[in-house]
């Protein structure tokens, strides 16, 4: 039962990872790539780590419970850190004057 749940969670997470990686490779400019990188990773790591934490509870004991809690702590830190890192990278790009890709290939200065 727990095994099935673990497998489903991990495979779903893996699928999201896969899709975001494809997105990182395919999107036209780095702003759009950050959309793939910043969003997909969070949910995917949440799903995978939850699956792994569940599997870890197979042989239940207090120490295993604490290890699972630690894994969930990792999720919490990723939740705090990942959007911040995304934002930091985007800010760096904006600061160094990368123009976002647009349909008409306009090159107007977005920053005045």
């Amino acid at each position: 039962m727990i095994d099935m749940l673990t497998i489903i969670l991990i495979l779903t997470g893996y699928f999201f990872f896969f899709a975001t990686t494809i997105g990182v490779l395919r999107f036209p400019d780095f702003y759009a790539r950050m959309h793939a990188a910043g969003k997909g990773d969070i949910l995917a790591s949440l799903l995978m780590l939850t699956g792994l934490a569940l599997y870890n509870l197979h042989h239940f004991s207090v120490n295993q419970l604490l290890v699972s809690l630690k894994i969930m702590l990792i999720v919490m830190f990723i939740f705090l850190a990942s959007p911040t890192a995304t934002h930091a990278i985007l800010d760096a790009g904006y600061e160094s004057g990368v123009h976002p890709w647009t349909k008409e290939k306009k090159t107007e200065d977005k920053r005045e």
């Binding site: 780095f30 990188a37 990773d41 995304t86 990278i89 790009g93």
Partner: peptide, 12 residues
């Protein structure tokens, strides 16, 4: 910046 992004993803 693409490289920085890549390293960030690899870290996760």
């Amino acid at each position: 910046i693409d490289r920085i992004m890549g390293v960030n993803i690899i870290g996760t």
